[in-house]
Amino acid sequence: MTEENPFDDIPGTTLFDAHKSREGYHLNMFCMSMGDAASREEFKQDERAYLARYPMTEEQRDCVLRRDALRLIEIGGNIYFLAKLFYVDGRSVRSVCAAMSGMTDKEYEQMMLDGGRSPEGNRSKSEWAQSA
């Protein structure tokens, strides 16, 4: 039985709740370790070997190696933890946000300068279904 979740209606959004947090525990704890300079170096030496220390799922591991932020969010990653992984590559949260929403850095930055993504048409999954 799955619990009904009214937040599921919000498009393009994964709520990082207690269930997601459990699903992503080892993934996020790996990311947390990237807050430490020596660990960052070890990770950069051999990413796959470093990841083997954390009992995350194969898909999570694969998405870390491919830096697939959008999918990592869906399978238990939290942006504040994932940010530490992307900092290893010298990437900002703004750049990761651009990638997740399918835009280039430049397009995303221009959208923000123009006032950000409008809530119009972005409140409910039914609105996205209509425009698809």
Binding site: G12, T14, I73, C97, A98, G102, G116, P119, N122
Partner: peptide, 16 residues
């Protein structure tokens, strides 16, 4: 207002 994740990243709602 801000959203840092998923395909709706970058949401801003000035009126709200």
């Amino acid at each position: 207002s801000h959203q840092l994740q998923g395909k709706r990243a970058g949401l801003i709602n000035k009126e709200w």
